[in-house]
Amino acid sequence: MMGWRARLGILVPPGNPTLEPEVMQLTPHGVSAHFTRMVAHGETGSHDGQDDRNRTQIAHLDENVELLSMVKPGVIALGHTATSYTLGVQAEADLIERITQRWHIPFITAFGSVVAALRHLGIERVAYGTPYNAQTTLQGKAHLEAYGFKVVAFGSLPNVRNIYDESSERAYGLGRQVNSADAQIVFLSGVGMPTVDAIDMLERDLGKPVISSVTAMMWNALRITGVHAPIEGGGQLLRSSASPSSGYI
């Protein structure tokens, strides 16, 4: 049987070529990952129309969750960070509760997983980097602050034409760019920009933990499904076994 240890359900933005390979890179033996692409219109990966695409994904979320629920996953994760920035704190919490109650499957978001990971690591001060435009970057900063974190440094990747054309090398450079001596951790937002191959190098070179939306999402999904094996290649968060927890966000 596939997923004899756990099955993960992941909702993917329609044009994202990055998330599925990175999830598979971080999936331990005995765990299977299953994907459904969400509905969005316009030029995927572009800064233009980002908020409209987020709202379209939210509007069609129930039908996508219904399809993904058919594989009976132990958790369903919304694999798109900026959707949480569009929702805001209360609407995100309401969505998580509604989806979980309707399908009786734990439902998490990429950003909610970042919040859970930061709390798990005891983090208060964050350096925050994105591949977004200034407006979306500031939305993300405000969202972190609304959860009680202090964003001591932040910035966005320069000269982005399309987020899905970015590379791990550029993600590494972004981490170096936004790092601050006062920051306890570096957080790279977004699941469209490849980050997994950059995280271990950043941690070694910066001397502090580094997380991205996808590493936090995988850590959260695995702990919720009761899989606590260490995973190489995703930084300190995934190398250490996740603590068992019945809660989720």
Rank of each mutant, 00 (worst) to 15 (best):
Arg55Lys: 13
Phe35Thr: 08
His34Leu: 01
Phe35Gly: 10
Arg37Gly: 12
Thr36Pro: 00
Ala59Phe: 12
Val39Thr: 14
Gln57Gly: 14
Ser32Trp: 02
Phe35Lys: 01
Phe35Pro: 08
Gln50Thr: 14
Met38Trp: 09
Arg37Met: 03
Val31Ile: 07
His60Val: 02
Gly49Asn: 04
Glu63Ala: 14
Asn64Arg: 13
Thr56Val: 03
His60Cys: 13
Ser32His: 05
Gly45Trp: 00
His34Asp: 09
Gly45Asp: 02
Asp62Phe: 10
Asn64Asp: 15
Ala33Lys: 00
Val31Met: 07
His34Val: 00
Val39Leu: 09
Val39Gln: 07
His47Pro: 01
Val39Glu: 07
Asp51Arg: 07
Gly45Tyr: 00
Glu43Asp: 12
Asn54Thr: 05
His60Tyr: 15
Asp62Cys: 05
Leu61Lys: 06
Asp62Gln: 10
Gly42Cys: 03
Gly49Tyr: 02
Gln50Lys: 02
His60Leu: 04
Glu43Val: 08
Gly45Gln: 02
Glu63Ser: 14
Asn64Val: 06
Val31Pro: 08
Gln50Cys: 07
Ala33Asn: 09
Glu63Gln: 15
His34Arg: 00
Ala40Asp: 10
Arg55Glu: 14
Ala40Asn: 07
Asn54Pro: 06
Thr56Cys: 04
Ser46Phe: 00
His34Tyr: 14
Gly45Glu: 06
Phe35His: 08
Arg37Tyr: 14
Phe35Tyr: 15
Val39Pro: 00
Arg37Asn: 12
Met38Asp: 08
Gly49His: 04
Glu63Ile: 12
Glu63Arg: 15
His60Lys: 09
Gln50Pro: 03
His41Ser: 15
His34Ala: 06
Gly42Gln: 07
Ile58Asn: 09
Val31Tyr: 11
Ala59His: 10
Gly45Thr: 01
Ile58His: 12
Thr36Leu: 03
Ala40Arg: 01
Asp62Tyr: 10
Asp62Lys: 10
Arg37Ser: 13
Thr44Arg: 07
Phe35Asn: 07
Arg37Ala: 11
Glu43Tyr: 03
His34Trp: 13
His34Cys: 10
Gly45Phe: 02
Ala59Asn: 11
Thr36His: 11
Ala40Ile: 01
Ala40Tyr: 03
Gly42Thr: 05
Val39Gly: 04
Ser32Val: 02
Ala40Trp: 00
His41Ala: 12
Gln50Asn: 12
Thr56Gln: 15
Met38Thr: 07
Ala40Val: 02
His41Glu: 14
Asp62Pro: 06
His41Ile: 01
Thr44Pro: 11
Asn54Lys: 00
Thr56Lys: 06
His41Tyr: 13
Thr44Glu: 14
His47Gly: 13
Ala59Gly: 06
Thr36Val: 15
Leu61Ala: 09
Asp51His: 05
Gly42Leu: 05
Ser46Ile: 04
Asn64Cys: 15
Ala59Trp: 04
Gly45Ile: 00
Gln57Phe: 12
Arg37Gln: 09
Ala33Asp: 04
Ser32Tyr: 03
